[in-house]
């Protein structure tokens, strides 16, 4: 499917989804509560079959914390981007997709390690690179007096 058809397809799943056609990918913005269900549909629907999660990025937008999923289908060759964000900075919770795509396991651990986003239902959510005494360095409000020089 090309981007136009994809847009139609996502619309057919849920009318209220916010869809933006970027330069490269169709971007769908979801609420954290919707994420898992929609991801599962995209993974399993015959005409979509997004079976290849090729990137999972955690982002700190300043106020919100978000996660961006880049999906591709190895069958149809089309790609889509799912975006979700939560405004809870103390205890951010997003559903894990690691049972849909195994590769999400490591990616989500990385996001948890660097941004502190907790993935519910993740089988093995531990710090990945850093030990537990560190803060979450990729957050914009992370302070490190020694290594980060502020002008």
């Amino acid at each position: 499917m090309d981007n136009k058809q994809l847009e139609e397809f996502v619309k057919s799943i849920d009318q209220d989804l916010e869809i933006r056609n970027g330069k490269q990918f169709t971007e769908v913005t979801l609420l954290p509560s919707q994420l898992y269900a929609i991801a599962k549909l995209l993974r399993e629907k015959e005409e979509a079959q997004f079976d290849f999660l090729f990137n999972l990025t955690g982002v700190d937008y300043g106020q919100d914390l978000g996660v961006v999923y880049h999906l591709r289908s190895t069958v149809h060759g089309h790609s889509i981007v799912l975006k979700t964000r939560t405004s809870d900075r103390v205890n951010p919770n997003i559903d894990s997709v690691s049972d849909l795509w195994e590769t999400a396991n490591l990616h989500e651990r990385e996001v948890y390690d660097l941004l502190g986003i907790k993935f519910t239902n993740h089988p093995d959510l531990r710090r990945l690179f850093l030990d537990s005494s560190w803060g979450f360095p990729l957050r914009k409000d992370y302070v490190d007096d020694i290594n980060i020089v502020t002008k």
């Binding site: 195994e102 490591l106 990385e110 990729l138």
Partner: peptide, 17 residues
């Protein structure tokens, strides 16, 4: 925000399997 999707990071995940 800049993210590198590095191939080795992902390939490491399959080692246990």
């Amino acid at each position: 925000r800049m993210k590198f999707r590095s191939p080795n990071f992902v390939n490491l995940g399959v080692l246990n399997h």
